[in-house]
Design a protein around this nucleic acid. Structure first.
Lengths: 163, 163
DNA sequence: CGCTTCCTTCAGAAGTTTGTGAAGTTAAGG
DNA sequence: CCTTAACTTCACAAACTTCTGAAGGAAGCG
């Protein structure tokens, strides 16, 4: 290596960031391994890592990588690509795609709305509780619309600032 | 009772809603007991229940109520009040206060931002990874501002529609 | 077509979280 | 000031998650 100590220092700095940021994500509700894998991808140069690289950097088994990646893919926080002509799979964090996923808790909100709607119906929309549920429902419907608009503004803002 | 079967049907309907809605909240990351307690409060007539009432409706021990309520109070999703001249504590879901708390993940976002800022610094703002982190950071800063504005619009909207 | 590489799935061990009963604390009421 | 009601805290038991090692596929390469 040309700069062994420099490289070592860097990879240690990366590791510190990875673990620290992952810890924050965990505190916000993300499972531990997905959080670590995600942070590792975020902190990688290209935003792409293979399963083996992830396992090595995080010191976890292939099985753990596999589970974490499946979780993240389901949440649309990473995408999986097959390197053509290789058995290696590559996992990518799409720079701008992942925080869209963050705000696209759409499926979750939909289910909340459904549950609330049923509640309003079954408790009666003129009962005090029914009215409370209806207001909550209205709030989510409002947020759903607003978030969509907000993401539009972000895309503009982003283009201006980052190209 | 004047309408035994009617009352029974109602409380069963309430219970069904409570458990169903709580399940959705759990799926979104809320711990089980806090979710159930919260749903029970939402579905109550006045939005206020005592510890004993919660324990009875949800069939859980006082200890479980205590733990759940502490959690919810920390998240500002309910507030606790002392009934004057009584040993009873009353827990209230504030109609409009709680979803403000939902969007006030402020503390969480702050910590994410801090971690990202450190990451940008320690990885170098001109490295590819540093730039990726910087963009993510910018996104959160953007969202933080936008959400504040959105909540302002909601309050207006809410007043128009619900008084 | 078989070998090799890489990933996934599965069963089980380890570790966490969660909820309870019991003891403890606070404060009203006599 | 003692009693009693209401909630909290603590230690432990039960339940659920999570991670690993081992076995099982798929897919390139010779």
């Amino acid at each position: 290596m040309a700069e062994p100590s420099g490289a070592a220092r860097d990879s240690e700095a990366v590791s510190r960031f990875v673990e620290h940021f992952a810890a924050q994500l965990v505190e916000a509700g993300l499972p531990r391994m997905p959080a670590r894998v995600f942070a590792a991808l975020l902190a990688s140069d290209t935003g792409v890592l293979t399963s083996a690289e992830l396992g090595e950097r995080l010191r976890i088994s292939p099985a753990a990588v596999s589970g974490a990646v499946r979780y993240l893919a389901q949440q649309h926080m990473v995408s999986r690509e097959r390197e053509p002509g290789s058995r290696r799979e590559r996992y990518r964090v799409h720079g701008d795609q992942w925080y869209e996923a963050l705000t696209n808790r759409e499926a979750v909100i939909r289910r909340w709305e459904d549950a609330l709607r049923q509640g309003v119906t079954s408790l009666g929309e003129n009962t005090p509780a029914g009215r409370r549920l209806a207001e909550t429902l209205a709030f989510f419907e409002f947020v759903e619309k607003e978030v969509e608009a907000m993401m539009g503004r972000w895309r503009v803002h982003r283009k201006e600032r980052f190209g």
